[in-house]
Write a protein that binds this DNA or RNA. Structure first.
Lengths: 271, 271
DNA sequence: CAGTGGTCTAGACCACGCT
DNA sequence: GCGTGGTCTAGACCACTGT
């Protein structure tokens, strides 16, 4: 505005307790929560925000980074910053596995834990599968209690709720090759298999009696970010799963799900 | 390379497929994982990294932000960037609540789910407690199935593994005031209470038969970041817990834990 | 092509921790 | 006081998405 003093470079204008980029982030969050900016629509472009808040581009981008990390928005390169429309769905662990057990017992059909989570009809989802027999590495050998280097059948999956929609989940799972090699379970043509891994193992006469899940949260790796179409600052759940037949682990899996799209539900009973 | 054209300002030097700040982050990660930079020690200061990688400060800071979001390092303002020493602990949901049930039944003593998680002796932890009777808001009323505005006893907790160490967990929990107001359970002087909420409710003749947990992951809010001493880019688990006596919810809680320090373990039994 | 976000530079002032 | 990270500016070039 008025120029009275000589300054070499841009000064920091009145240091406030909460930094400028946080204030901007809070204001934008408020507008989204108040419905002033519609869910699913685009945020004003960076130049507009720079003008409105009288801030440099870096500051505006820092503010957007905050919202991105909260999962409130995500950015698409040449397009803009999109306010997320989706509300999180609950991945209820016991319900989903119980559904698979029901299929294995012939009490239900045409579902898999993924369709249960997303409340999807059977024909409205798509699964990409790759199956390969490989040597187990330290991690999988540990999860399945195998000797190092023993062979496993690895299955890589990408799930999409709609045939051409974005991927919502990716996973790798392993079963001992000694158990499944050469069986219909190892044939990718049989996917998606109703009732998932539990039903697959049941078809081989193996009854899964317990499932353990370990949950971590972290930033996505680059291949995960690419497959799941995640922008910088996104967070993923990584679920390490083991299925047991008695005390013997018979399947292991690592499941990656964007954390802003789901909530993980678990129950613990006294019994 | 060869300079033929006049440029006003710093050019972007040789655009590579993976951005510069990611390359730097990868290189630093490698050094940490190879032990070249020791766990618990400080990363070289920004100016040193700028010199070594011939990059501007912003670029170096972007690289460090990547490591921070991965939970590999955390920054302390006037001190430096610290490489995290801790390995994640597992918060095994059924074990921890089973331990509390054992206390409630008089089968064990001097423990609480937090000390179980951290494998701590009883006298080596500290708990900060505030207890207050308030009106329930929409969220707590929903979790406890109360009429809107019905009163609840709110308990705010901060856990520290060592008396003066950093906080590792913070939570708020609510019980219906009609159940606990005026009882020893509502007296903060009785904290820490062996066996936690389950034992507290048991002392009132209420038997918890089921615990449900819903897990989300997100960036910490500012008060959480302050209490847990989190740097920017950190991720927290938010566990929403309900304890049930039969079909009646008797306690609700929201537990916030930094995601880089724990792994959440759950088991699902075929039953 | 214009407009969007992605990356980078160079320099400045500020707040914090230590000695 | 000095060195550390935290915030901010101003400007540049690049890559992607739309028309």
């Amino acid at each position: 505005m008025s120029a009275t003093e000589p300054r070499k470079v841009a000064p920091v204008p009145a240091q406030t307790p909460t930094p400028r980029f946080r204030q901007i982030a809070d204001e934008l969050r408020k507008r989204i929560e108040d419905g002033e900016i519609e869910r699913g629509s685009l945020l004003p472009p960076e130049p507009a925000l720079m003008a409105e808040f009288e801030a440099a581009r870096g500051t505006v981008r820092d503010a957007i980074a905050v919202l991105r990390q909260d999962g409130l928005v995500h950015t698409e390169h040449g397009r803009g910053t999109v306010v997320r429309p989706e509300l999180p769905i609950t991945r209820q662990a016991d319900d989903r596995y119980r559904a698979d057990w029901a299929v294995a017992d012939g009490l239900a059909a045409q579902q898999t834990s993924f369709t249960v989570d997303h409340n999807l009809p059977w024909d409205r989802h798509r699964l990409e599968v790759e199956v390969e027999e490989v040597e187990s590495d330290d991690v999988t050998a540990g999860l399945l209690v195998l000797a190092a280097g023993e062979r496993v059948v690895e299955r890589r999956l990408v799930f999409r709720p709609k045939p051409r929609g974005r991927a919502e989940q990716m996973s790798r799972s392993w079963m001992p090759a000694s158990l499944v090699a050469g069986t219909p379970v190892a044939d990718p043509a049989n996917e998606p298999w109703e009732g998932g891994s539990i039903a697959q193992l049941a078809s081989l006469g193996v009854e899964v009696t317990e499932v353990r899940e370990h949950v971590r949260a972290r930033a996505p790796k680059s291949d995960e970010a690419a497959t799941l179409v995640l922008s910088a600052g996104a967070i993923v759940f990584v679920i390490t799963r083991q299925m047991f037949a008695g005390s013997q682990p018979v399947e292991a899996a690592e499941i990656v799900i964007p954390a802003d799209r789901v909530e993980l539900g678990y129950r613990i009973f006294r019994s």
